[in-house]
Design a protein around this nucleic acid. Sequence first.
DNA 1: AACAGGCTCAACCGCTGCCGT
DNA 2: AACGGCAGCGGTTGAGCCTGT
Length: 363
Amino acid sequence: MGRAPCCDKIGIKRGRWTTEEDQILSNYIQSNGEGSWRSLPKNAGLKRCGKSCRLRWINYLRADLKRGNITPEEEELVVKLHATLGNRWSLIASHLPGRTDNEIKNYWNSHLSRKLHNFIRKPSVSHDIAAVFINAPPPSPRPPTKRRPGRTSRSAMKPKTLNPKPRKTKKTSTPPKPNADVAVKAVAEEETLMMELNGGAEAELRPCDYYGDCYDNNNPVSINGDNGVLSFDDDIIDLLLDESEPGHVFTSCGGEVDTRDSKGTKVTSNQENLDSLQSCPSVESFLNYENQVNHGDEFIDWDCVWQEGNNSNLWDDKEGHDSMVSWLLDGDDETMIGKSDCDKFGESLDLDEDNALVAWLLS
DNA sequence: AACAGGCTCAACCGCTGCCGT
DNA sequence: AACGGCAGCGGTTGAGCCTGT
């Protein structure tokens, strides 16, 4: 027998919230405070599921929400946080006052992930390495039709408002959800498909060729969304490069921040982990994506990575960096993943491989 | 002006972890 | 220890918006 539904679906209203419902919910929470979401709709007189009430309050009605577009500073922070935290949207949002996890998630999925997805099409980048960068699964395969240029820019989109026009809500049956696969496999499958569609023309494709002939041989990284083609433009990577220290990247290589509360108890907060981001001559931060290798059973335990790294002082010496890179690459090997939790940690890369990887990451 | 289609974002769904019993 | 209820989280959906053709 399956789990009982979170609420009685009979008589429950779904879809867009009306201003009247918003008002009722706001008034109730201001009078009674947050919490007890399950009983809230009944007590407040709303024909809504408790989860829906909670979501509406958190994502829309809270007084401390910030309105308007994500600023460049916020975007930079999101990118850095995502590099460290992965798809932990609530954690990321907690570092951006007034922003919700839903908002950050939407922004990432609709804006930032696409940039990264196009980035991995760079022909000089092996999928094994590129996969390390991409946390979100790529969009579903598109036919290789030329994308029309000059579509809606984000800046031109209407900013959200507290009083949106009500939209009709049509509930449809839930189709089977696509499997959120690890990027390396998804990309490989996508490109296999593209090979089939293109009759083998894939090998000739350069970045962005799927969406239009926007590749500039003289300046292959200058492609950006301004011409209507969302593509790799180094923006994301630049955010993680430490401009003051050529070759360095912002990482959390300092490890866990050890702070103690008034009772002397060790406390490690997310903010402290964030604050520990620092310039470091390594690539761990780039590679510190917990979920992109979360591929079904093939799960690399990044908590274990941190733990082992700290235990072995691997973050503190050159040998450690080599080991880390090696371990990560080995970890991408399907034959190695999941065999044991931390067994593969610390095996060194061949120097040439290591140099090649680092050179590519920092190029 | 009509159309096409990319984009945004509010909302839903299902899963997971925590906590009380 | 097992179970169930609940809150929270991340993935996904799709209506409506917007802009180029």
